[in-house]
């Protein structure tokens, strides 16, 4: 899961504005249901947790099962009251976590 996640967020917002955040991370999201050419089960390897924090405070946490599509896309709103540092992180079955950060400025 080395690829850098893609996050689309506005650079600035009016105080109290609700902005839409769009996220996309590359991951096979292997379900654990599939078999390889020799008939052996391919073990499950999915991103099971997504967390979004705003200025250190958790705003959205999501638990995913194998039914979430490969290269998971997630869009959600955030209410921006002040200049915010928004951190997004994804954790998979291998224990690997990738994070990315966006700053939304309130003028």
């Amino acid at each position: 899961m080395a690829a850098k996640p893609r996050v689309k967020a506005p650079k600035s917002a009016a105080a109290g504005e609700i902005v839409t955040i769009k996220t996309l991370v590359r991951h096979a999201m292997e379900t654990g249901q599939r078999k390889d050419a020799d008939g052996n089960k391919i073990p499950r390897d999915i991103i099971h947790t997504f967390v979004c924090t705003v200025n250190g405070k958790e705003v959205l946490r999501s638990n995913w099962e194998s039914a979430v599509s490969a290269n998971p896309y997630l869009a959600f709103p955030l209410k921006i009251d002040e200049t915010s540092e928004v951190v997004f992180s994804w954790t998979d079955d291998q224990g690997e976590t990738v994070s990315t950060k966006k700053t939304i400025t309130v003028a």
């Binding site: 379900t31 249901q33 705003v59 959205l60 638990n63 099962e65 979430v68 896309y73 959600f76 709103p77």
Partner: peptide, 30 residues
């Protein structure tokens, strides 16, 4: 929850007032 999938759970979203609106968009396997 997808009632006809081998594992019925799809995703859970723990929300908070900081979102401003209660909405999420994503993609699932059926």
């Amino acid at each position: 929850v997808a009632t006809g999938n081998p594992t019925p759970g799809v995703a859970s979203y723990m929300m908070s007032p900081g979102m401003g609106e209660a909405t999420v968009s994503s993609r699932m396997r059926l």
